[in-house]
Design a protein around this nucleic acid. Sequence first.
DNA 1: CTTTATTGGATTCCATGGAACCTATCTTCC
DNA 2: GGAAGATAGGTTCCATGGAATCCAATAAAG
Lengths: 158, 158
Amino acid sequence: MRTQHPRTDAGRLFDDLVRVEVRLYTAVDARLREQHGSGLGRFDLLRVVAEVPGCRVSDVVRVLAITVGAASKGVDRQERDGLVRRTVDPSDRRSSFLSLTPEGAALLDAMRPTYAAAVRDLLGGAGLPERDLATVATSLALLRAHLEGGPANVRGRA
Amino acid sequence: MRTQHPRTDAGRLFDDLVRVEVRLYTAVDARLREQHGSGLGRFDLLRVVAEVPGCRVSDVVRVLAITVGAASKGVDRQERDGLVRRTVDPSDRRSSFLSLTPEGAALLDAMRPTYAAAVRDLLGGAGLPERDLATVATSLALLRAHLEGGPANVRGRA
DNA sequence: CTTTATTGGATTCCATGGAACCTATCTTCC
DNA sequence: GGAAGATAGGTTCCATGGAATCCAATAAAG
């Protein structure tokens, strides 16, 4: 009944995952800042707001895997900078709908190709076979779905 | 001359990578805190000090992919808590050798199996085929090596 | 309908990492 | 040998996310 696989060193895989993520995140973030004056944090938040219909803070929490406090404060910052708008949800006055302002939408649209190119360049530079890259992609998607369905994983990094 | 592969959506892959990393990091960190009162940040730092011969701050920077300021402060905290010791490097008085105290070594040893089990449980729970997991592992290792060799990737998350 | 329990998210205090800056020390150049 | 340049890492200011707390609003129970 072994669903675990002693052959792949899970600890090593995880450590590599963390380091790769940090380095990629850093590099992509830097590219976005250079070209748009705004980094990945903002990009991710604007994207969630743009892509989730009827977006609320709890959606930001779920999609970005951060705490509600961080999400609320992140939205605060975008609102303060005129990129996001909060409008009260009439069916539940505890929450608001988040939407992009025209400025927010324009910035997001400008950032998208930069983001895509940065990620592509960084991943492409390693020379991974396409077949392996596809496996990594599907595996990560599966992992993400699995972890999002988990019970108590909605905490952030300490 | 296309070394890039338009078939795998690199942006999507990267987004999944970030979310998976955050959720895994959070869960492993929580497990370590529950059982040892110390989280992943400390574990990672103690591990680097234990495993890099003649470890200095710059080694922490390289291995963990953080800035020198963060590394220095991280070492400060472990030193303050009696887990790490700094001794001046006589051949270069600008730096010190980092070593674990007995308490630091004991804590690290206690945390290792918890870490391994936590990661294994989390990754195993997703039901990825072993073959895919192995591909992910080798790909991440390759990516990590490639990114560590890069020029300006030693920044942290903004 | 009223009371109790739960939920959504805002706020506060805190921890940690980044950028910029700084200083002691080492290396290179002339 | 001394001056200029480079390096190792410590410090300060700042940004951001987490945990805990809080409160308004909603849902559930009786």
